[in-house]
């Protein structure tokens, strides 16, 4: 279980999340819905240990995490994969897709890395030709598949998708959703964040409204 309890977070003086609780269960897709600017992305980043919180706790499989970003233990950060809204912004323009996917695997064990990249390429339908291209030479959908492959390269227990399909066309959205569903069926706990309720209804196992997760508006969604 990936849980956030009583999370308070924001940007400088501006508090976006006022005491929010959230649980991500292995093997399920948890949808998180809310209008633009409501703090969905902030919560996703807090849960992925990328954004500092001023109060509250995040626990990964029972281990409470102190700090965020570089200060959070690296092995806990690796337990949670993250997929961002814009695949273009989330890939270094100087790297080929192969390098993007291989980044988390490091250069230490070469043959194992190559094998894992080949596995991921097959799982996410990336041909050899695509792997040798740069981000500007592939479509948004192909690039987002590479980002998804990178996020799960180290077999994280959890995956956070922050508006991962907002920039994509319907077909590509369906492809990404299908791939993420496959990961969830294999045991990954997924947090899918979106402003599109229709999308989350079709994609997630259950949909939460960010508004209801605040302590001051909490309802019995936990059932």
């Amino acid at each position: 279980m990936l849980t956030a309890t009583g999370v308070v977070a924001g940007y400088g003086e501006h508090t976006v999340l006022r005491s929010v609780d959230l649980t991500v269960t292995p093997g399920r897709i948890t949808g998180l819905q809310g209008p633009s600017g409501s703090g969905k992305s902030t919560l996703a980043r807090v849960v992925a240990l990328l954004h500092p919180r001023t109060a509250g706790t995040v626990t990964v499989d029972g281990r409470s995490v102190t700090g965020s970003g570089y200060l959070a233990p690296a092995e806990l950060r690796r337990r949670i994969g993250m997929v961002f809204q814009s695949p273009r912004a989330a890939t270094d323009p100087r790297w080929t897709l192969r390098q993007v996917i291989a980044e988390p695997l490091g250069a230490a064990r070469r043959s194992a890395t190559r094998q894992r990249v080949a596995e991921l390429a097959e799982q996410f339908q990336l041909t050899d030709d695509l792997l040798d291209r740069y981000p500007h030479q592939v479509s948004d959908g192909q690039l987002q598949r590479a980002c998804l492959a990178r996020a799960v390269a180290l077999r994280p227990a959890y995956l956070v998708c922050d508006e991962a399909t907002a920039m994509l066309d319907p077909s590509t959205t369906a492809t990404i959703a299908q791939l993420v569903r496959g990961l969830a069926d294999a045991g990954t706990g997924v947090l899918a964040v979106s402003h599109d309720r229709a999308l989350l209804t079709a994609w997630a196992d259950h949909v939460l409204d960010l508004h209801d997760l605040h302590a001051d508006a909490r309802t019995s969604w936990e059932s």
């Binding site: 339908q125 192909q142 369906a174 599109d196 229709a198 079709a202 994609w203």
Partner: peptide, 19 residues
């Protein structure tokens, strides 16, 4: 038809193949 079928409300099935 394939494009409409990829909408979340209409089946959520990706259009086959890569463009």
């Amino acid at each position: 038809q394939a494009l409409w079928n990829s909408l979340p409300e209409r089946g959520f099935r990706p259009v086959p193949g890569d463009p």
